[in-house]
């Protein structure tokens, strides 16, 4: 079996990049609609944080805010080529780095 092993410690990678481009670290709920970003960390604990990560929101993953629901909550984001709805309270636990 020729299985490629995973790249190690992706978080450090993004931190470097964040410094290089002097981009801001914010939580996902603060992004404006249409903004592109990359996940830095999922800070929550427990089932919700785990579910978010299982759905592909892991450090290093690109995300884009597509829109927010008519009453301002939940948010719709695009991650890993599909669309995910999550509440602002959940988005708050995800810190992201803005991409130019």
């Amino acid at each position: 079996m020729s299985i490629a092993y995973a790249a190690l410690n992706p978080t450090a990678n993004i931190l470097d990049r964040a410094e290089t481009f002097e981009t801001a670290t914010v939580s996902l709920d603060r992004l404006r609609v249409g903004a592109h970003a990359r996940v830095l960390a999922v800070k929550g604990e427990g089932a919700v944080a785990r579910r978010l990560m299982e759905m592909g929101v892991v450090p290093g993953a690109p995300v884009r805010v597509v829109k927010c629901a008519p009453l301002g909550d939940p948010l719709e984001v695009r991650v890993r080529n599909y669309h995910l709805a999550l509440r602002r309270s959940e988005a708050q636990t995800i810190s992201v780095v803005l991409e130019s």
Partner: peptide
């Protein structure tokens, strides 16, 4: 966030597989 490592590692591996 030590408990997140296997989840992140699985996705790293998946990204490699998909890339290939």
């Amino acid at each position: 966030q030590w408990w997140q490592e296997p989840l992140t590692a699985r996705y790293r591996w998946i990204e490699r597989v998909a890339e290939g």
